[in-house]
Design a protein around this nucleic acid. Structure first.
Lengths: 132, 132
DNA sequence: TTGCACACGTTATAGCATAACGCAATTGAT
DNA sequence: ATCAATTGCGTTATGCTATAACGTGTGCAA
């Protein structure tokens, strides 16, 4: 998918996520945008829905947060599954794509005649810097 | 880990999950246990915490729900990562363990010097019965 | 110009999870 | 025996996450 022009709200939310060094919750984004006129959660969630649809933002299900895609110029939908390593100390996220893992999972799903639509692969732990 | 004797509350919660045909949210479990004297969410969450710790229950992060482990006699901690295929129509969950996927992910994590602690692999879509 | 699609704003509400308090039972070391 | 530590439990209150439902304005195509 090619990313359309972003609306004002979408741009604001995307900028906040791009500048952040760690994933942000929707409510944290809201707080960061109060000065630009944001007042309600829906303003954030609606922008996020679109950004997710465009593939420029990822949702981290295990921590109810959102990050900008680490591969801005590629198409996240085209390189298959995305995996995340999430540091529980510093919050940093490493994004990663692997065709081997993809294929293996897809083969299994196929053997079960399961039609995959969305996937979540998240590993929580400690990054190189934070691991004592 | 060997599973210790379950307390009354833990047994009640575990039974509900075992009998369920689909994952249940904590609040759904609460409602099903009101007749046995459950009154507050914490009663459910505390039991769930222990059952998760013992490895007899899994949490599905992407749908905020819980399922009994599909491999009651094995030790879920010993066979590494667990993956789930979750049907968005009927709610059915297929649980699955694959060493290939494990190793591939673990190798990558190692290359990043990332110390993994918890993992989430969840695929949402439609099962064989529900896929039109 | 009418109808449609879409983004937006607002209020209210639903759904998920935990903090903080106190009590009771158990265990185990001294 | 007794004291301290641990664990489970019950309750109230609260906080965080997400969406429903309503109405407005704008742009564009038939």
């Amino acid at each position: 998918m090619t990313t359309p022009m972003l609306t004002k709200n979408q741009s604001l939310v995307f900028d906040v996520l791009t500048k952040a060094e760690a994933p942000l919750s929707a409510y944290t984004i809201l707080d960061k945008l109060r000065d630009q006129g944001f007042r309600a959660p829906l303003q954030v969630y609606r922008a996020l829905d679109k950004l997710l649809e465009y593939g420029v933002v990822h949702r981290l299900e295990s921590i109810n947060s959102f990050v900008a895609c680490a591969h801005p110029n590629e198409d996240c939908h085209s390189h298959g599954l995305v995996a995340f390593a999430i540091c529980e100390s510093c919050g940093q996220v490493i994004e990663f794509h692997d065709h081997e893992v993809d294929h293996r999972l897809m083969d299994w799903l196929k053997s079960q005649k399961f039609k995959a639509e969305k996937s979540t692969i998240e590993i929580r732990g400690h990054c190189a810097n934070c691991a004592a």
